[in-house]
Amino acid sequence: MKARKSREKKGELEELGGVLGGSTAGALALGGRHKPEELSTLAANTRFSRKEIQLIYRGFKQECPTGLVDEEAFKQIFSQFFPQGDASQYAHYVFNTMKRKPSGKISFEEFLTILSKVSRGSVEEKLQWIFGLYDLDGDGLISKEEMLDVVGSIYEMLGRYTQPQIVEPHLAAREHVDRIFHLMDANKDGVVTIEELVQWCSKDEQLLRSLDTLDTVL
């Protein structure tokens, strides 16, 4: 029994050391696990340093030992950061911006790529991600109802930490959307395009500064 556990532990250490140290051996899949790309490749394709990727990977593997995460697991991870409210719906929307596989699961590479764009990307990349977050049906347009759904989920997630504290999140969300949607919809056709979003955001210095706070210092 001890010998088997020792072999399992050795295998895990070899995978972690190999993948994050850049050796080819570490990129081999163990059992049914997903095999991440080598550290050098991940560093070249993202805006994270090798050390930052190592730290992110360790946390990812701790929560997702198979190397893949489905939506339910993602919601559980996300909810740990927002225990004061209900983050499940917003986590669903965020997960949909990452999901690429028919299986409905995301790999470490996909997670890292999105995280890199959102935290270290240009203003344009960040706004493109935000647009994709609100464009729930993927038709290239944001309707007022789509914006209401996402804003409502944000208020639900923030819970009692909103200032002032919001008693009815969905009512507050509707008031917020009613206040800004018509300002974003420059041609008044009832939907917001990526161009209209960029134009509106470029006029708001406070919002542009808030995009910088998405940067992650590890």
Rank of each mutant, 00 (worst) to 15 (best):
M98P: 03
G140N: 08
K188I: 06
K9D: 09
L136P: 02
Q80S: 14
W200L: 09
L133W: 08
L115Y: 11
I53F: 03
P65T: 07
N45H: 11
E175F: 08
F95R: 00
G152L: 01
L112C: 03
D215L: 10
G26W: 04
G159F: 03
A44C: 07
L68Y: 08
G138K: 11
W129T: 06
T97F: 08
P83N: 07
R50W: 00
F60G: 00
D185I: 12
L218I: 14
A3R: 15
N96S: 14
D215F: 10
K51C: 04
K105F: 09
N187D: 15
L13W: 09
K105H: 13
L28Q: 12
M147D: 02
Q80I: 07
G140E: 04
S116K: 00
S107L: 06
Q84C: 10
L133M: 07
E146V: 02
H34P: 02
E63F: 10
P36V: 01
L133A: 04
G138S: 06
S119Q: 05
Y90V: 01
K126N: 10
D70H: 07
V19W: 00
E14N: 12
L207F: 15
T162N: 04
L158K: 00
L68G: 03
D135I: 03
T113Q: 12
L158P: 00
Y161N: 15
S143R: 07
G22L: 02
F82I: 13
S153D: 02
D149K: 14
R33M: 10
L13C: 11
T216W: 11
V151K: 00
L136M: 05
L42W: 04
F60I: 02
N187K: 10
Y155S: 00
E175Q: 14
K61W: 08
H182K: 13
H92E: 08
M1L: 12
I180L: 13
Y134S: 00
E8A: 11
L55Y: 11
E72D: 13
F131R: 01
V151S: 04
L218P: 05
A186H: 12
K9V: 13
L112S: 02
L68P: 02
E14F: 04
G21Q: 04
S23M: 06
H34D: 06
P65F: 06
G85D: 04
A91G: 04
M184N: 05
S122F: 06
E168W: 07
F108V: 01
L42T: 05
E71G: 09
D70K: 08
T41V: 15
L112H: 03
L115D: 03
L136N: 03
F111R: 02
A173L: 04
G152A: 04
M147V: 01
G22F: 03
G32E: 13
L171A: 15
E124M: 08
G121P: 05
G11K: 13
Y93K: 02
K5P: 01
